[in-house]
């Protein structure tokens, strides 16, 4: 199982993501700079969190229009798994790989705290390491994570089992509709989520509830 981490200027959780993939998978992922000619032949492409291009204009909007994202789109169409976390999620939405929008948090403030997540669906390559309905801990750290989609899109997401994670136990930190924290594309090989499972994978983090996501993707025991 080979993984690559895409880096756009301004992303800053790339090192956290690389460390998590390395620690859980046992090998370091390929690191792909946005101007590189191509993405190596991998099974998983990860777009980590941060502030690509300063989040100027709109979160993820500039990175989403990078030629590198055309390559991500091609790979995704061929079935390669794509994971976007936080700014990575925002980029996937801006690039049209996932539906809806991520608006400013209802508090209008950046929020960094631990929340509870319900693993809403597990019939996909990302969350099958969890039990359906399982409640896990996970930190969030974002300013624009307020998920929104129109009624029709929302019905499709819910009906097709494409909501991967939901904020649970009243911990929705940003006002997301239906408490949505992470969603899948129709083929279920693209996942975007606002929380940071890569920051909860070992005892130093005070817990390892995020580990199963990566272990499943990398075919490793959690």
């Amino acid at each position: 199982m080979k993984a690559a981490v895409l880096v756009f200027p301004g992303l800053n959780r790339d090192r956290d993501m690389i460390a998590a993939l390395n620690k859980i998978g046992g090998t370091a992922p390929a690191v792909v700079w946005h101007q590189d000619a191509d993405i190596p032949d991998v099974d998983l492409i990860v777009i980590p969190g941060g502030f690509s291009y300063g989040d100027y204009l709109r979160c993820g909007a500039i990175a989403a229009r990078s030629p590198m994202m055309d390559k991500v789109r091609e790979r995704a169409a061929r079935g390669v798994k794509v994971l976007g976390v936080c700014n990575g999620f925002q980029i996937l939405i801006e690039a049209g790989l996932l539906p809806g929008a991520l608006m400013r948090n209802t508090s209008l403030k950046f929020v960094c705290r631990e929340v509870k997540l319900e693993v809403t669906n597990t019939d996909n390559a990302f969350t099958s390491g969890y039990a359906k309905g399982q409640i896990i801990r996970c930190p969030v750290a974002h300013h624009d994570g307020n998920y929104f989609a129109d009624t029709e899109t929302l019905a499709r997401l819910e009906g097709d089992g494409r909501v991967a994670f939901r904020y649970a136990d009243g911990t929705n930190p940003n006002g997301s509709i239906n408490d949505i924290a992470g969603i899948l594309n129709a083929e279920k090989n693209v996942l975007g989520l606002m929380p940071h499972p890569e920051n909860l994978i070992e005892s130093a983090h005070g817990g390892d509830d995020g580990r199963a996501l990566f272990a499943t993707l990398l075919n490793k025991a959690a």
Binding site: N12, R15, K109, R113, E198, H205
Partner: peptide, 9 residues
């Protein structure tokens, strides 16, 4: 909580 207190892991 308005500061990222856990980045870098």
């Amino acid at each position: 909580e308005q500061y990222d207190t856990l980045i870098q892991g």
